[in-house]
Design a protein around this nucleic acid. Structure first.
Lengths: 236, 236
DNA sequence: CCCTGTATTACCCATTCGGATAATAGCCAA
DNA sequence: TTGGCTATTATCCGAATGGGTAATACAGGG
């Protein structure tokens, strides 16, 4: 059900994505775009603040360093565009995104990430992110993306297009399978997985088998590796 | 051989690590500390530059965004202190560190990292880093660390102490074992590992067995997970 | 020179794994 | 209601895995 709604987006970026975009000029002379920056690293926030503050029509209204602060800051400032880091200690950026969008369905939020993993990308898309960018974006690209999003557009960069094709064929893990994968990484045998999940060993085997199929891997070791690769598993 | 030389460092930070440090004052009135910043993310560089540039006795002489540029920039500017990101595309920070230290044995280089993984920490130590800090360090801490290092001190923060104890008992993987671990993550069977390494299946089994012992894990799946956890394996 | 660690190979054996197949039941959407 | 997905369980079976033990060879540090 997701794949179906995703495809059209790839071929229909909102008007203004390109060389001469009228939205930019409109925004420039009216009122500054109010921004909220969320990242757990103060260095990164400072970098963004410095970079974006240099634009005349941008105004960094607030910063936050975790999911909770992000939600509170949003309520207080209701920014035009929010830049939200995906991975933060204590509640991921996806959670913050979900929470903010629940309270403010019109919130325009651009997710930022260091690694090009596909799971968080799709989670972000599902949760209603307006954009998804790598932190390595060039200044001009970022500024353009923010203007685009402020104007109601969406911006899922190269990342999106790169990862889309592989995801179409790769099926998503079910809840149970995700739990099982997390037990695999901990070195549990099928029997112990069964015990941990409160099911029979045979059921655990079935889940593992299903994981191997969906992830298209040869064994549990590769499943764990791909789990990290896709962002299904995270360092802890 | 490493553990022996490391321990004393923990209890003997160079003079001046504390409240009233004379080195700071010395440096302040003499000449600014020349800095080189290396990080592949322009946002991060900008953050550091903004933050450090605000200190009167700091001077950000140059920036670089990969290992190669870092080495060239070092040759050109011979900074007092270099801030070097550990993970960068195309040659890790460790390589840059090694190369610079080979040419300039007195180079004072502080490694910066996002994740608190133990392998790069020890690699950095072995390669002669003067410090090792998480990117999440507070401004004051970073500034103090740079002054300390500029004065000839070393600074391996909380990270170091936390990770040291676990590493003392956990033995390092041999070259062959590291190669084997990388094949495990790709889902190869013992037989295929043997073929890939040009050895017998029995030898491959022996390597795998040794990995499981050294990493103290139950099976290859957990070995892969711990491999990522320790920084022995990286996302690609 | 000896000891340690690495790399290599080999054999045995019980356990585990992964593939194939199949059946039941619940839930949700078309 | 029907079809599809998930979750559950089960059985069969050959292959792979992990543990134990042991031997050889080579290199490097003490």
């Amino acid at each position: 059900m997701r794949a179906l709604t995703l495809v059209p987006l790839l071929i229909s970026p909102p008007v203004g994505r390109g060389v001469g975009m009228p939205d930019t000029m409109l925004a420039k002379s009216v009122r500054p775009i109010k921004l909220l920056l969320v990242d757990d690293h103060s260095m990164v926030r400072m970098g963004f603040a410095t970079l974006l503050g240099a634009e005349q029509d941008f105004h960094v209204a607030a910063e936050a360093e975790d999911a909770e602060q992000a939600v509170r800051a949003y309520r207080e400032h209701t920014p035009d565009v929010t830049l939200l880091d995906i991975r933060m200690p204590g509640g991921s950026g996806i959670e913050a995104l979900t929470q903010i969008r629940a309270e403010f369905p019109a919130a325009r939020i651009v997710m930022l990430t260091t690694y090009d993993l596909e799971e968080p990308l799709f989670d972000a898309y599902d949760a209603g992110a307006a954009g998804y960018l790598l932190k390595s974006v060039k200044r001009a690209e970022l500024v353009a993306a923010i203007r685009l999003v402020a104007g109601g557009g969406r911006c899922f960069g190269e990342v999106f297009e790169n990862r889309m094709s592989t995801r179409v064929r790769r099926k998503r893990l079910s809840l149970r399978e995700a739990e099982t994968l997390d037990l695999l990484r901990r070195g549990l045998s099928n029997k112990d997985i069964g015990i941990a999940l409160g099911v029979s060993e045979n059921t655990a085997k079935a889940h593992v088998k299903s994981i191997l199929q969906k992830l298209e891997v040869a064994d549990r070791a590769e499943a764990v590796a791909v789990g990290f690769q896709l962002g299904l598993l995270q360092l802890e």
